[in-house]
Design a protein around this nucleic acid. Structure first.
Lengths: 150, 150
DNA sequence: AAATGTTATGTTACACAATATCATATTGTC
DNA sequence: GACAATATGATATTGTGTAACATAACATTT
């Protein structure tokens, strides 16, 4: 079984457990993201689906599907660039963490990673000192990847 | 002299030093931001200017003006929300730092602050460990302000 | 199987964000 | 004043995202 198939199976199982359905269209959108190492915009996914499958994907549908996949934590939305990436932990068993991302502003390559708990706590403390309260620990860093940095 | 006037004078002086000009329109857009404690979108600024000044501000112009003000570091663009805020350091003498922001996702209030050097270094190190290189230290945190947190 | 409620998708229209392009006006320098 | 450089006007176009309503697919009960 291919790695992609394996991940899709995990995803499907997770949805079933939650009482939701990973339909064919949703599966195809998710596949598109899984096969890309870069973050894709909704409209890029529309194009991807229309090119690779003999079906019509309306932009509206893709937006809805992405919203669904996000709720199921199968996909994350990068808020700095309004693009989407598949979660790297779909086939893992361990509980899901709050995602942090490094994003190459040049080639758009994305890596999901985690800032250490202690650094995160320092950040949190300094934010609180400004009389604000952190709502989400998702942080996105504008970076260059190794290849683009040369 | 009003505090606003004082800041505008500093801004004008800074432009002159850079060989650029803080025109009347630019001054008005900047004033709009200086008088708001919330981040404003380009189109909100268009409305603000058209309501408060007896002149016509086209969206196109406001975008160009914002771009200019950003270059002069008089204004920062919040990339998470595509909104703009006046820099808090216009009238300061000390060299300008890379801005970090806490943004209330509810009322859009914004505060410019600075993460400590040591925390920033930790972040930087952890990013490098993922084979990426930080391009910008500007970070925006999704927060709730004290008033909205209740 | 028929009826019903729920979820998923189709379709169209629209609002908002941002940029491209070319024309015109204003300013600074010689 | 003539010229170059900069700033603004005006219009069109592209991209992103959502609202609203219609239809289709599925699940459950009877």
């Amino acid at each position: 079984m291919s790695e992609l198939q394996n991940i899709l199976n995990h995803a499907e199982h997770r949805c079933r457990v939650h009482g939701s359905r990973l339909t064919e269209k949703r599966k195809k959108v998710l596949s598109g993201l899984l096969q890309s190492d870069r973050a894709l915009s909704a409209y890029e996914l529309v194009d991807y689906c229309n090119e690779n499958y003999d079906e019509n994907f309306a932009a509206m549908s893709v937006y809805r599907i992405l919203e669904f996949l996000e709720q199921e934590q199968l996909v994350h939305k990068l808020k700095l660039s309004n693009r989407f990436v598949a979660c790297v932990h779909i086939a893992c068993e361990h509980p899901h963490q709050i995602p942090q991302f490094v994003v190459c502003t040049d080639c758009r390559k994305v890596k999901e990673f985690s800032i250490s708990r202690s650094t995160m706590n320092s950040i949190k403390r300094q934010v609180e000192e400004s009389s604000f309260h952190l709502v989400s620990e998702q942080i996105e860093f504008n970076c260059l990847c190794d290849s683009c940095a040369v």
